[in-house]
């Protein structure tokens, strides 16, 4: 069963990244459930495995455009695939770090792995309904997929 507090911690970690790294706040869109199949994800995904009081996967999924602008906002002119992968991994790592700080006593959070490229899927625990939280930043929308049980 989902717990609001846990999801909120991951959402906070995500928005916090934009506030600090991009110096421009992101807003949270209307969250929803994925009731059938796998969630639609973008090209670049930073995935962290969570264990402890709850177990599962949290994935920060962002479109190429958002990451490109984010890199440029950070004064990085190199927007190659590798840099985008690094960036999405860094976002996931920051989320993990924030959650570890806030809920570290209850959670063990893995080092992020990056899943990139069209057609890729993120393996989610079977039988759970992931929550997708849209993250609006400028004109772009990323997704935070939280699948914990």
């Amino acid at each position: 069963m989902l717990e609001e507090q846990d999801i909120r911690a991951f959402v906070y970690g995500t928005t916090r990244y934009f506030e600090v790294a991009a110096q421009q706040a992101a807003s949270v869109g209307s969250p929803y459930l994925v009731t059938e199949g796998a969630p639609d994800i973008h090209d670049y995904n930073g995935v962290i495995a969570v264990s402890g009081r709850r177990n599962g996967i949290v994935c920060f999924s962002a479109p190429r455009g958002m990451l490109t602008v984010l890199l440029m906002k950070m004064n990085e002119s190199n927007v190659s695939h590798e840099y985008l992968c690094d960036l999405v991994g860094e976002v996931a790592n920051t989320i993990a770090g924030t959650v570890r700080r806030d809920l570290g006593k209850d959670f063990a959070i893995s080092v992020p792995t990056v899943v990139a490229g069209a057609g890729n899927t993120v393996e989610l625990p079977i039988g759970d309904r992931p929550v997708v939280i849209p993250i609006n930043w400028r004109s772009h929308v990323a997704k935070l997929v939280v699948c914990l049980k």
Partner: peptide, 9 residues
Amino acid sequence: GNDFLPLVV
């Protein structure tokens, strides 16, 4: 959207 998290749960 943050306010809607309890609804999803």
